[in-house]
Write a protein that binds this DNA or RNA. Structure first.
Length: 578
RNA sequence: GCCCUCGUAGCUCAGAGGACAGAGCGGCGGACUUCUAAUCCGUUGGUCGCAGGUUCGAUUCCUGCCGGGGGCGCCA
């Protein structure tokens, strides 16, 4: 275990148990990065209260039983009772060297692997994906990749909108246009145009509207011919989704599809069970679940409607079915919903209802990873249903175009194909990283210039660090896998870089627990920053002697591996050159 | 009306009850015969919305208020 924070936490924990008895087993040693040393433990202060002793006295007792001679150059008690740790350069160097050639870079696999269904992306059939979809797709994919790397059993669930009343008009429109028509082709390339055309006909032509309504009935009734057309519609949309996912480098495939229609067969049963158990009752003609803890206007209880007065089911019913399915069939330990923040109340009600119905045992934790709204520069929410929203592919194309302009001026010597490839990696990386680098639950203003900025905490900055490292190996004609070290810490920039490299495991563990990819972004940015300082101050190929050169090559190699791994967990590509 | 969420430097944002609140951008001043300057170094910049409370200690937890955003019965 190369991570100093874990090592020190373990040592402090056993020291405090030794000093104060086994009652304190499990006490968090509160080891944190420090501005006054490498790490500090804050545990003595809260412990002092519990033990009714002076904080510094408690700290002294802990330090007395502490054996960190191998790791630390000094351990000091400071201020009101902080324990400051300064690591030995030799230890830092050796731990960093142990990361060479380690595909996990010292990151331990989860001690208790969980089954984790993760629900994200969820675009609608015959609808363009917009910036909101982009965010849940990108954040969800990063979480899926990270949880997977940490050793959990991740089950991706793409809950696409493939059912509901609009499908009557969509199917009718498809029938009129013909399955092989140019109009049908729009489902693959420009789904909103297809949707709008269907909508326009529905609004303007009463005969068409009538056929659309009858078509909905036929669809729900399981009419084979109608179902065939419905499948065709889904197939066309799937190819659109997959094209977007491929372009963006998102891991979702057809195997992960679990759309709304998947749950149709259980909806009647869900309602019947709820009604029989007395959890749901008829109100104003609709079957509703009322829970005491949820009240709305004038203190009236807010219903979760599971069956409308016309007999149709709602997304609440479907969502209850997802909970039940994920617990019973997927054996979930934790269920992750990467869904817009405005759905918070709805999901809470779904979870509470599922608990009451016995579909969600206390051992299973549902988590809503709230995705904040993306605002336009006018400060208003970008929504697909009202008005125009920016087409996702337009946004991506624009990002790639702007990146291409930069590459054209900085690397005129490269051929067009190579420049285009770089522009795509950088442009898409910039867009994805912008979504990932701020906390997922806050809303933010969508701004081309900011997300495409080539300095600061951005994708291109991290990619540039990768490109420069690869350039070193190319220029030196060095096979990265032949780098052996050993590492010797000389310059402050070398020490800072090495120390930072050892912290990857702690960050990833945190991301896995809190489901916050922006913490990985912050870590990688700091790492890239530490590297560029090192790059600036410590020549690698032109190092003063062979030993220093080997040491710096080893540091460089581990940095490359960490950046590439981190970026891959975010779903951002790591270019060969920029 | 009730509930959720946010309010931190001019701007965009971090911040695990702990030491003097941190980055980036912008501004200002430096560094390219260089392993890629899409870079680096220095500097400037804050009543952490307001008022109480809990605590040895609060940007962090609790309560109230003010302000922005969102949600609150048959769209999903």
């Amino acid at each position: 275990m190369p991570d100093p924070q874990s090592v020190l936490a373990e040592r402090v924990h056993s020291a405090l148990v030794t000093a104060f008895g086994p009652d304190l087993t499990g006490t968090d040693p509160v080891v944190r990065p420090s501005q006054f040393a490498d790490y500090q433990s804050n545990v003595a202060l809260p412990l002092a209260k519990r033990l009714r002793r002076a904080p510094r006295e408690v700290a002294a007792a802990i330090v007395g039983g502490l054996d960190v001679r191998a790791e630390c150059e000094s351990v000091e008690i400071s201020g009101p009772g902080f324990i400051n740790f300064t690591l030995r350069d030799s230890w830092v160097a050796e731990q960093t060297r142990s990361l060479l050639g380690d595909p996990r870079l010292g990151v331990p696999a989860a001690a208790h692997p969980q089954n984790i269904p993760i629900d994200y992306s969820a675009p609608n059939v015959a609808k363009e994906m917009h910036v909101g979809h982009l965010r849940t797709t990108v954040v969800g994919d990063a979480l899926a990749r990270t949880l997977d790397f940490l050793g959990h059993r991740v089950i991706r669930q793409n809950h696409i909108g493939d059912w509901g009343t609009p499908f009557g008009m969509l199917i009718e429109h498809l029938l009129e246009a013909g399955e092989d028509s140019a109009e049908a082709e729009k489902l693959r390339t420009d789904p909103n145009a297809f949707y709008k055309a269907a909508r326009a006909k529905f609004d303007a032509d009463p005969d068409f509207a009538g056929r659309a309504r009858r078509r909905v009935v036929a669809l729900q009734g399981g009419d084979p011919e109608t179902l065939r057309h419905w499948h065709e519609l889904i197939e066309l949309s799937k190819s659109y989704f997959n094209r977007v996912y491929r372009t963006l480098g998102v891991t979702l495939t057809d195997d992960d599809l679990a759309g709304e229609s998947t749950y149709n067969r259980w909806l009647a049963e869900i309602c019947a069970e709820l009604e029989d158990a007395g959890i749901a009752r008829i109100s104003e003609g609709a079957l509703c679940v009322f829970l005491d803890e949820f009240t709305g206007r004038e203190g009236k209880p807010v219903p979760l409607i599971v069956r409308k007065s016309d007999g149709g089911y709602t997304y609440g019913t479907t969502d209850l079915a997802t909970v039940r399915y994920r617990v019973q069939e997927l054996k979930a330990d934790r269920i992750v919903y990467v869904i817009g923040a405005p759905q918070g109340l709805h999901l809470q009600m779904v979870f509470a209802t599922a608990r009451k119905a016995g579909w969600l045992p206390d051992t299973v934790e549902p988590v809503h990873v709230q995705i904040g709204n993306v605002l336009g520069t006018d400060g208003k929410i970008l929504r697909s249903r009202s008005g125009e929203s920016m087409r996702l592919m337009t946004l991506v194309d624009e990002a790639v175009r702007r990146a291409g302009e930069v590459v054209a001026t900085t690397r005129p010597e490269l051929d067009d194909a190579t420049r285009a490839h770089i522009a795509e990696q950088v442009g898409i990386g910039a867009v994805k990283y912008a979504d990932l680098s701020v906390s997922h639950d806050t809303e933010y203003v969508f701004d081309f210039d900011r997300m495409l900025a080539l300095t600061g905490n951005t994708g291109p900055y991290l990619q540039y660090a990768v490109a420069r490292i690869r350039s070193i190996f190319r220029r030196g004609g060095i096979d990265p896998s032949a780098v052996r070290g050993p590492i010797a810490i000389g310059e402050p920039a070398e020490r800072a870089l090495a120390l930072h490299l050892l912290g990857l495991g702690a960050v990833l563990e945190q991301v896995g627990e809190l489901l916050e990819p922006h913490r990985l972004c912050a870590y990688l940015y700091e790492l890239a920053s530490a590297f560029t300082t090192f790059y600036d101050q410590c020549p690698v190929l032109r190092a003063p002697d062979a030993a220093v050169r080997d040491s710096r090559l080893a540091l460089t190699q581990v940095t490359l591996d960490a950046l590439v791994l981190g970026l891959s967990l975010l779903g951002v590509s790591a270019p060969e050159q920029m």
